[in-house]
């Protein structure tokens, strides 16, 4: 009798927690829409420039968020493009090849790396850039590339750990099925184990993508600026939405400017949603190619 009451209490608590989370999420979105919804107009993005001319990079946008949007998308794609291959490869190494003491040590190292505050990573990126600038490449300054590299470094441990975890969660009988048919280790990894762990790996990629899109501390120190226009080169400055939100909310002059900050926040969320949808579509395509539904 007692245990059934306990069970009921746990279920009620679980439901309340879920509802509470949902309520907070709805409150955040609602708050953003109430405060920034009115600013959501084409002029918020493109200013006085004709949208088509801006989209094809024919005219520069001065009074809109377009350069920041392009900057954020470029930054996220670049950082993830840099981080995903070594992240997944290191995850495979950890789960399938690394054994014993080395594995424990590396695991601890990656966990520590995951816990480093982003401002420290930003500082590190800046210091390395200054060092390289002084001693090797005079033309190297904080820039889009440096920011992307620093962000990639920031999210690398997530990718490694989620890939490793997804691979290690595969039950032994599944793990042995292909080798029993004569599959080599690599064949097993690429034809069975990786497709089986796509779900786990892609959730790691989604988390890392979100982290890259929202981060302000790293990019503040490594190349983002308030006005740079659409990024023209990997080695140039750029604009980004989270930085825009940060500086507009810390030094807005009137209500309207603050509203634009909220509008930028909504756009940032929207971009994240789009990136997530793209990642999920890629996952679905890949899992169809190997298997049926997973």
């Amino acid at each position: 009798m007692k245990s059934s009451w306990n069970e009921k209490a746990i279920v009620v608590f679980a439901w309340l927690s879920g509802l509470g989370l949902l309520a907070i999420f709805a409150a955040v979105i609602g708050f953003l829409i109430i405060h920034g919804g009115r600013s959501l107009q084409l002029s918020l993005v493109f200013g006085d420039t004709p949208p088509l001319a801006a989209l094809f990079f024919r005219q520069r946008v001065f009074d809109g968020l377009f350069p920041a949007i392009v900057g954020t998308v470029a930054l996220v794609l670049l950082a993830m493009g840099i981080a995903i291959p070594p992240g997944i490869a290191a995850g495979i190494y950890m789960a399938e090849y690394c054994r014993g003491k080395t594995r424990r040590l590396l695991g601890l190292f990656f966990d520590i790396l995951a816990g480093i505050p982003s401002i420290v990573i930003g500082l590190f990126g800046l210091s390395v850039t200054i060092f390289l600038h002084r001693h090797f490449f005079r033309q190297l300054y904080p820039s889009l590339l440096i920011s992307a590299l620093s962000l990639a470094f920031l999210v690398l441990p997530y990718l490694i750990r989620t890939t490793q975890g997804a691979l290690e969660d595969i039950p032994m009988d599944v793990r042995l099925s292909a080798p029993a048919m004569g599959a080599s280790r690599l064949q097993n990894i690429f034809m069975v184990l990786l497709p089986r762990s796509l779900k786990g790996i892609s959730s790691g990629i989604l988390l890392a993508t979100g982290r890259c899109a929202e981060d302000t501390a790293v990019i503040m120190l490594t190349g983002v600026v308030a006005t740079a226009g659409v990024p023209r080169s990997l080695l140039g400055n750029y604009e980004a939405l989270p930085f825009y939100i940060y500086y507009i909310s810390s030094q807005y002059a009137d209500r309207q400017e603050l509203q634009r900050g909220f509008g930028a926040a909504i756009i940032l969320l929207f971009i994240c949603a789009l990136l997530f949808a793209a990642a999920l579509a890629v996952r679905r395509h890949l899992s169809r190619r190997f298997f049926y539904h997973l």
Binding site: D173, A180, H293
Partner: peptide, 8 residues
């Protein structure tokens, strides 16, 4: 194997 293990 003991339990059928077809790939998905």
């Amino acid at each position: 194997f003991q339990a059928p293990n077809p790939l998905p």
